[in-house]
Structures are given as structure tokens and as C-alpha cells.
């Protein structure tokens, strides 16, 4: 099974390290960072939220694109924007999750392409909320990761120290 980006929302502490890592990894011109492909939000004291492309099987962005500029990379399984893009912005309007974006500094349409198989966000995530993992999770692991838990940084650090 190929690798995937796994998100564990309860581990996210909204530190924005993934946004910075993404921004710098995707910088096309040195010195002018790009808009990040991943974003985190604070919902309330207990809940944070990682917004990341889901790489849908039947992706809306891909379907509305008039020039077939969004193509899935068979190696990583991620949909990538290629040079066929004419900049109509239909994909931004069509994505129901808000994961397509327009970078107005570099004038290009952007989405997560898992850094061609080496995602910077997962590399730098300090709490393990974003993991680039090879094996599928067991039921127990999946259950652990979907359960509601505190996002208090101290308790997460404690939990990580125990392992």
C-alpha cells in the first residue's frame, strides 16, 4: 500500500508549523514564500482543525477543469496542477472543502500535492497530528485517533513522552 497523509485532529495544537513548512517548501521564488497548501484553525478551546486536500476519488476540481490541468500522479495518488492551467478559477469555486486556492502573490492556482511524496508539513509537525505513513491503521489505532481528546499541548507532550 502506498503512503498517505494521516490527520489526527485532536493532536493539532494550532502552532502553524505545517503552514510555515509548506509555505517555504513550495516557494517558487526565493525570498517570497508561497501561500500554504495546508491550514489550521482554532474552533474552540478544545478543538483545532487541519484543512488539507482529501485527494478525492471523484474530485470536483478535476471535473470542472476545462483544460484537464488537474491530473492525479499515480506514484503519490495526489492530484496536481500542471502547466495546462489557464487560470479560470473554476476549481476554487467547485471544491466543496475549500482546499483549492489562488496564490495572488505568485499568480498561480495551488493545491496540496504531498510534495511529490515527501510532505514537508508531516516532517515538521511537532505533535504528530500530520503523519506521512505507509501502513494502514488498525481498527484500534483508527478508533484512538477519532476519539475526542484534549488538545492541551501539555497533555499531548506528556502522551508523547510516555511512548
Amino acid at each position: 500500500m502506498s503512503k498517505r497523509l494521516y490527520v489526527t485532529p485532536y493532536r493539532c495544537i494550532d502552532c502553524k508549523v505545517c503552514e510555515q513548512a509548506c509555505s517555504l517548501a513550495k516557494t517558487p521564488v526565493p525570498g517570497i514564500p508561497a501561500k500554504p497548501r495546508v491550514q489550521t484553525f482554532k474552533v474552540d478551546d478544545q478543538t483545532n482543525f487541519v484543512l488539507l486536500c482529501l485527494q478525492c476519488d471523484e474530485a470536483s476540481c478535476q471535473k470542472v477543469c476545462p483544460t484537464d490541468a488537474l491530473v492525479r500522479n499515480p506514484e503519490t495518488g495526489a492530484i496536481e496542477v500542471n502547466d495546462r492551467c489557464i487560470g479560470c478559477g473554476f476549481c476554487v469555486q467547485a471544491c466543496p472543502f475549500g482546499c483549492m486556492d489562488y496564490d495572488d502573490i505568485h499568480n498561480e492556482y495551488i493545491k496540496c500535492d504531498v510534495c511529490k511524496g515527501d510532505p514537508a508539513c508531516a516532517k515538521y509537525c511537532p505533535t504528530g497530528a500530520l503523519v506521512w505513513d505507509e501502513k494502514a491503521w488498525t481498527d484500534q489505532e483508527a478508533k484512538e485517533r477519532t476519539e475526542k481528546k484534549s488538545t492541551d499541548p501539555f497533555s499531548i507532550a506528556l502522551e508523547m513522552a510516555k511512548k
Partner: peptide, 16 residues
């Protein structure tokens, strides 16, 4: 999630 990003409208997600 689209609304959250576009509008910075986090309360909508509180049911999560």
C-alpha cells in the same frame, strides 16, 4: 471547512 477558510467563520464547525 470551505466556509471556515473563506470566511474565517470558525463557530460553524463547533458541532465537531
Amino acid at each position: 471547512s470551505a466556509r471556515v477558510k473563506r470566511y474565517g467563520y470558525a463557530q460553524k464547525l463547533s458541532h465537531v
